[in-house]
Simulated assay, not measured.
Amino acid sequence: MTTSNWMSRTPDIDSLNICELTLPGAHNAGSDWRATYPIFGPPRHWLACQHDSFHAQLNHGARALDIRLRYDAKGEGPRKFVLHHNGHTNSRTLENLVNDVNSFLKKNPDEFIVLDFHSLDGNDFDYQNFNNAITTLLGDRLVPRVNQSLTLQELKRISTTQRVFAAARSHSKLDYKVFHDKISHKWSGNGITNPDELRQFIEHVMKNPPGTWNSWSLSATSYTALGGPVDIHNELNEWFDLDKSDWALKCNIINVDFIEESDLVEFCRVANVLKAKQRTA
């Protein structure tokens, strides 16, 4: 299955907007096995939630990237903003992110990406500098906040380049015309979560999932004290298979670790086709 352009090769879903879609998301997208981590710090297996770079995640079908940034005054330009997992930084920076997004969209111009700036951390975080970096480096890629409710088809008619939704907690230094509302995360609340506990948590959320008036994400991740992030692709394939449950139909963004390991992308694609059919029925 080709995952790099799954949205554009499924034109039926163009009748949906970004909040109505079911999107495969990469949890802690900036903490991956190929990044470099400080020698004096937690071992890599406690921190890495993805196998490869942002570009690889997008190629594997991720359409929402969960981004957590810290500010490094010693960096230059967009390298002042460094990716981290629970405060532990690595070699990935905002420069890597925007370069990978631009490179991916150059090859796949009709895919849509949500950049979920889940946390912008540190008392010294330079919001003005961050705002300038995003608006300058992603400029014509950004979907304006006012257009959030438009369908993919309508967005394509308006622009051939606006394909990125940048979401962050509101701040006086962030351009409200550009940045969308902070994406609400549904997660278990426990840093250590085994698959059975995770399944119970998701069952609870699915009984009364959020509506489609704004984007939200479900954290479908498992973590152990000894091993760190766990590859639960078998469980994900069981839980989100459309033949076995309607969970995928009830979600907006499904955040997972190691995005390419499961069949989540295909489940999301099929769920979106079903949603589009329901709309026209």
Rank of each mutant, 00 (worst) to 15 (best):
D140R: 07
E203T: 11
P209G: 10
D181P: 12
W187P: 12
R199E: 09
R169C: 15
I183N: 10
L236K: 01
N208T: 10
R145G: 02
N190I: 10
H233Y: 14
K207I: 12
G227F: 14
D231M: 01
F179I: 09
R141M: 01
A167I: 01
L226M: 12
D140G: 02
D175I: 01
R163V: 02
A220C: 15
A133L: 05
A168K: 00
L226V: 14
S159H: 14
G139Q: 12
D231Q: 06
V146Q: 13
G189Y: 02
L152T: 03
W187N: 06
A168F: 07
R157H: 06
P210R: 05
S170R: 11
N214D: 12
R199Y: 08
I158Y: 07
Y176F: 04
G191V: 04
Q200W: 04
P144K: 03
I192V: 15
R163F: 05
G211H: 09
K186H: 14
S149G: 03
P209F: 01
Q153Y: 07
L142T: 04
G227C: 01
R169M: 14
H233P: 00
G189L: 08
V178S: 00
I134H: 03
H180N: 13
G191N: 14
T221M: 06
I192S: 11
S222D: 06
S149Y: 00
L236H: 04
Y176T: 13
E235S: 14
E203S: 13
S217M: 09
L236P: 08
A168H: 03
W216L: 08
N190G: 03
Y176H: 11
S222N: 08
H171V: 00
V146S: 04
F179G: 02
T135Y: 01
G227V: 06
K173C: 03
E203C: 10
I202D: 03
G191D: 12
L137G: 05
S172E: 11
Q148C: 05
T221G: 02
A133P: 02
V164G: 01
T136S: 10
K207G: 06
G228L: 01
A167Y: 00
I183M: 10
I134V: 15
K207R: 11
T136Y: 11
L138C: 07
S172Q: 14
T224R: 10
T136H: 05
S188I: 02
H171I: 05
D140Q: 10
D140A: 12
A220L: 08
I158N: 07
I192K: 11
L174F: 07
N147V: 11
W213A: 11
L218D: 00
T212H: 13
K182R: 09
Q162L: 02
V230E: 11
S149C: 02
S188W: 08
E154I: 08
P144H: 13
K182I: 00
G191E: 13
S149M: 14
T160Q: 12
T221I: 09
Q153M: 09
Y223T: 01
I192H: 10
A166V: 14
T160A: 15
R145Q: 12
L150T: 00
R157I: 00
T221E: 11
I134L: 08
R141T: 03
S222C: 15
K182N: 07
L138I: 05
K182H: 15
N132L: 05
L218E: 05
H204F: 09
N234M: 14
N208G: 04
N234I: 06
A167C: 13
P209Q: 03
Y223V: 00
S217V: 08
S170C: 08
D140C: 03
V146A: 15
V230H: 01
Q148M: 12
A133Y: 00
